[in-house]
């Protein structure tokens, strides 16, 4: 369905002779195609605008080296700018706080919070040797607490015993208490999914934060999200101040433009990616991989690498 950006750009630049530097006009033409490619990859329109401006500044006047075409040159600049905007370095989940360190998961319905809670807990225990307690604060969705309990059973990570009738804030308090008494290093709070315009639930989320004082608040979002990514990321961030983003369903064939949207509007790092349904399918964020995907994978990668070698 999608034509890759390099196909499009090579078409445009085929007619042009190679010259020393990219002109304003060349760049302008190329950026129209870049814009379209980004929108098709689900990058939010306002972020597309911001992004193409940044590329324009870098590209106009850039020297085109002999071994690459102007089209390849633009792709290289776009790619590098994408990686820069996504965040060059992987930023790990921070545990740099007095124990028990609280990590709170938030996000829309069905984005992958509970699954990621299980995955991250397992990882903290296996890789960092932490004693982790998981607690589900989801008293709304049918069997949500049972889901986390079962994940705890599968992974061997402890879960806070379920007590019927408690509010999310009460459960959060109980979890913090239990973690202190039980000598846990980390408390993972899984919250109910909520739409960001659902005022009572957004207020509840802020109350949970105030009660538990989490060190990390991770926004868990689906990498298949479309234009709405900016609205949701902005709303959650404004309301509770997220400290990082987890992108789920990277194992799908989506183009992942939501990553750029959410990163751009919140300025918060993408810390982890969910790459499957199983408990070990969690990876550090790779900006390069997502940049390649947004641009249309395949030949782009080799093209850029070739250009990089020669530049």
């Amino acid at each position: 369905m999608f034509e890759s950006l390099s196909d499009r750009l090579s078409g445009i630049f085929d007619g042009l002779t190679r010259r020393g530097a990219l002109s304003d006009k060349d760049v302008g033409t190329a950026l129209r195609e870049v814009r379209r490619a980004l929108i098709e990859a689900d990058v939010a329109l306002e972020v597309v605008r911001q992004f193409t401006e940044a590329v324009r500044e870098k590209a106009v006047g850039a020297e085109v080296v002999k071994s690459v075409t102007p089209g390849q040159m633009v792709v290289k600049i776009v790619h590098d700018e994408l990686v820069a905007m996504l965040g060059e370095e992987a930023e790990p989940v921070s545990l740099n706080a007095p124990s028990p360190v609280c990590i709170m998961m938030v996000g829309l319905q069905g984005s992958g919070k509970t699954t990621t809670t299980g995955k991250l807990s397992l990882r903290l225990r296996e890789k960092q040797n932490k004693k982790v307690l998981m607690a589900s604060l989801d008293v709304r969705r049918p069997a949500a607490q049972e889901q986390l309990r079962q994940l705890g059973e599968q992974t061997g990570v402890e879960t806070l015993p379920i007590v019927e009738g408690q509010s999310p804030v009460q459960i959060a308090n109980r979890a913090m208490q239990a973690a202190k008494l039980g000598g846990f290093d980390v408390v993972m709070l899984d919250t109910a999914g909520r739409t960001h315009i659902d005022e009572p639930l957004m207020a509840e989320m802020a109350e949970i934060r105030d009660a538990a004082d989490p060190h990390e608040i991770l926004l868990v979002a689906d990498s298949l999200t479309g234009q709405d990514a900016v609205n949701l990321a902005e709303s959650f961030n404004k309301r509770v101040g997220v400290t990082g983003i987890v992108l789920t369903r990277i194992d799908g064939d989506g183009r992942g433009g939501a990553a750029l949207s959410m990163r751009a509007v919140t300025g918060k790092p993408i810390k982890l990616m969910g790459t499957g349904e199983k408990m070990d399918a969690l990876e550090d964020f790779h900006p390069k991989r997502i940049a390649d995907r947004i641009l249309g994978m395949g030949d782009i990668v080799s093209l850029v690498e070739k250009a990089s070698e020669t530049i």
Binding site: M1, L224, T225, Q227, G252
Partner: peptide, 11 residues
């Protein structure tokens, strides 16, 4: 189909 999904919904 989740309404928040973007272009991937076509696939």
């Amino acid at each position: 189909l989740d309404a928040t999904t973007g272009q991937n919904a076509v696939n």
